[in-house]
Design a protein around this nucleic acid. Structure first.
Lengths: 262, 262
DNA sequence: ACGCATTTGTTCGTATGTATT
DNA sequence: TAATACATACGAACAAATGCG
């Protein structure tokens, strides 16, 4: 009978690490979740950049002094959170908004018939501006912080469909100009990610039906009072820190907002 | 050197089961996914009923002749799909729409301020009716199949907010009456599940902004032409079979449709 | 074209921890 | 307290996909 190998040693490590439960903390965190937190920190600090491959599971296991299976479970959750993308035989990669597939995650407006297809962008303006109090609060800005306001129209085959009014903390987006926005090909979040190091992780949307005011109606080539979809989006980066507040007005005459309930 | 124990035997089982790849099938399915399919069948056939506990992981492993870890991975995915709910120390249970927490999954309308709170229901009518061609097609109904049409108003503190127009395949909902709907306390999907054995698994929604027509405006106590949110929902049961088409008109003056983008 | 190394994916087994009854 | 069930953690082996020489 082969001598049974001694029991795993890492239970002790889990206990000691998990023992940061003294005060009113989250009590206890399993080892794989602690590894997940360490890896999230590496992502946040830019040790692993969008699009790049992270170290292999074996390497990470050695680095963190845990088994490969524990690293695997941490990566599983990060992949479920859309922070990482696994590719069999190639490695695990940091998710990026520059990819084709990822765009549908934040782009929910679909034509009633036909393929999603890209829309033409036209930037109306992009300027530094003091945000109204409610916006400042939503973005966790302090009294004197200013914001960058971007307004744009998206058109589908020549017809304007979306009017976006986007507010960003100026401190994070220094040097953002209409020209830079126009020059960049690809999704805006790709630009934010590569040029400003701000990665959108998650967002919450509040959707209402509203009547178009005169200004919006003019930009969307609609009669004033037309029914529009109002989509207010608060986007968060690592640590659930809000970094974008966007108010979109959608003409849903030939498009709809698509949602999946699971 | 201890003699290494022989390799696991179940790889062979996986290969033989997975060998159902002869024709143009999905080629290959890992063992845990085959187990998942078997378990889904047990759910669909009613062997395990909503709210009940399924057998323990150990029992299932014995039943399917696989390791406990493989069963666990199958359950993990079924739990991620919201078909099962795990409860440590108690067991794994079949998800049910009768539970408190589950309701928020299909109920996305929130008051702009205050708690979600329940709304009062009033059923306008419930009758057997021939569906228009487009509805029939969406519900996969044949030429002569009829449908049950339910219309209702949901009110929040006395103010009507939602006007629902719901179409169901008559064959699946024999004996559904306005009285039965009124008598049942709790969510409608709970009634469908317990009384008709139809469990909603997943849904797709298309959201638009529309102007209220005269009839809808009257029921929602609004002026004609008011902007309303139109939410068209197609709900699916096991096997992605469509079993409900619902058109809702929401007054978003004091409410909004909430969505999370992950 | 073939094989090899690397990396993730699957499966098993075992031991131990935590929660519930 | 004991029994049961899910949760965590380790290790080992093989499969499948990829890329390189």
């Amino acid at each position: 009978m082969p001598s049974v190998p001694p029991p795993a040693n890492t239970a002790a490590a889990a206990a000691s690490l998990g023992a940061a439960e003294a005060s009113a903390g989250p009590a206890f965190s399993p080892l794989y979740r602690q590894i997940k937190a360490l890896m999230t920190a590496s992502l946040q600090q830019g040790e692993w950049r969008p699009g790049e491959a992270i170290p292999s599971e074996t390497d990470l296991a050695a680095r963190f002094k845990v088994s490969q299976g524990t690293v695997r479970k941490a990566i599983d959750e990060l992949a479920a959170d859309n922070l990482l993308v696994r590719r069999q035989g190639k490695g695990t990669f940091v998710a990026t908004h520059a990819e084709e597939k990822v765009q549908f995650r934040f782009l929910r407006l679909m034509p009633d018939s036909g393929e999603p297809g890209g829309m033409e962008r036209r930037f109306i303006d992009c300027r530094r501006q003091r945000p109204p109090p409610d916006l400042a609060r939503a973005l966790h800005l302090r009294a004197n912080d200013s914001a960058v306001r971007v307004r744009r129209v998206l058109s589908f085959r020549g017809t304007p469909v979306v009017l976006d009014d986007i507010w960003l903390p100026a401190a994070l987006f220094k040097g953002l100009t209409a020209e830079r926005l126009s020059d960049y090909q690809g999704p805006m979040y790709g630009l934010f990610e590569s040029e400003f190091g701000v990665r959108m992780i998650r967002a919450e949307e509040k959707i209402c039906a509203v009547a178009a005011d005169a200004a919006s109606a003019a930009l969307l080539l609609l009669p004033p009072g037309a029914a529009l979809l109002s989509v207010e989006r608060l986007s968060m980066t690592y640590g659930d820190k809000p970094v974008e507040l966007r108010r979109g007005l959608y003409n849903t005459a030939a498009h709809h907002y698509r949602n999946e309930l699971n």
